[in-house]
Amino acid sequence: MRVEIWSDINCPWCYIGKARFERALERFPHRGDVEVVHRSFELDPRAPHQARPVVPLLAAKYGMGLEQAEAAEQGIADNAQAEGLAYVRAGRDAANSFDMHRMLHFAAEHGRQAALLDLLYRANFAEEASAFAPGRLVELAVEAGLDGAQAARVLADRQAYADAVREDEATASAMGATGVPFFVFDRRLGVSGAQPADTFTAALEQAWESRTVLTPVDAENAAGACGPDGCELPQR
C-alpha cells in the first residue's frame, strides 16, 4: 500500500502531522507493506527567497498584533511539543521553499528523501539558525547522505526537478487539495490536516481493507492545516 503525503517545509502542521501519522504507522500491523512517498506542495509559490521573520508575517496575514502572533506561534509550539517534537518559537523565519522541494525530488532518486525531509523540518522548526541561509540546503543534503557536489549542481540549475515539483502540485490540485498536510492512501482515501493518530490508524485500516473511490476523511473539519491563506491558529 502506498501513502502519499503532500506537504511544505514552511508548514508547521505538516511537521506535526507527519509525527502523528508515523505514530499511527508504527502500530499498524501491516506497516512493513506500506510505502510512504512525500510530495511537493508550495503554500506560497510567490514567496521571496530572502528569509523573513515568521511572527511579523503571521501578524500581517491575519491582521493581528505582534503579541497575538507570538501567542499563535506558542500554540503551534505546544502542539509540536505534545508530539515530542522540538520547536523553536522565537526568531523562526520563512522563505520560498521551491528549491527545498527540488532537492527532495533529487534525494528521492537516491533513496534519501525521508532523511532529507526530517533534516529540513528539524532545521526549520527545531534549530536557531535559519534553514534558508545560503549554503544550508546543500549542507543538509550532505548530512542526509547525498553527494554535495551533485546537490550543489541541482541547486544551481533552476530547471532541475522543477517539473517534478509542478507535477506533484498539479496532482494535489486535481484531487481537490487546497492545503497541507494532505495524505492519500492508495489513491483511494484522503485525509486532510494534522489529524490525531487514531484518525490515521483508521485510515490505514480502511485503505488496507477496501477498494473504494477516493473519499475525503474529515475534509470539512480539517484539523491543523496550512493553506494559501495561512495556517490554522490554535485556540488559546
Rank of each mutant, 00 (worst) to 15 (best):
T199Q: 13
H105F: 01
E139L: 02
R236S: 08
H101E: 08
F98Y: 15
V191H: 11
C231H: 15
R166A: 14
M1A: 10
R89G: 13
T215C: 13
D198F: 06
V184D: 04
H49W: 11
A131M: 10
P48W: 14
M175S: 09
R20T: 10
H49R: 14
Q50W: 11
A19E: 08
A149Q: 15
L214E: 11
T178R: 13
T201A: 14
M100W: 01
R31E: 06
R112C: 01
R136K: 13
A203L: 14
H105E: 10
R236E: 11
G65C: 02
Y161D: 00
A129L: 07
F185G: 09
G32E: 15
E143G: 00
L117K: 13
A69S: 12
R89S: 15
P134K: 13
D198G: 09
V184S: 06
F21I: 09
P181S: 05
I5R: 01
P12N: 11
G193A: 05
V180L: 05
L119W: 00
R158M: 06
L57M: 15
Y87T: 02
P56H: 02
L85D: 04
D8I: 00
G32Y: 12
A177N: 02
Y121A: 01
V54F: 15
G227V: 13
A207G: 15
F182G: 03
H49N: 13
A133F: 05
A95R: 04
D229G: 14
E205A: 12
Q113K: 12
T201Y: 07
A194H: 04
E143N: 01
P181V: 06
H101N: 08
A108M: 12
R89K: 11
D157H: 12
D118G: 14
H105K: 04
R122C: 00
L120S: 12
A80H: 00
P181M: 13
G91N: 07
R166I: 02
R187D: 14
P228C: 07
G91F: 09
R158Q: 13
Q150R: 00
R211H: 11
R102A: 03
A225M: 15
A60V: 12
Y121D: 03
E73W: 00
E22S: 05
W13G: 00
R89N: 08
E127F: 00
V3M: 03
R188Q: 14
V55G: 04
G75H: 04
L155V: 15
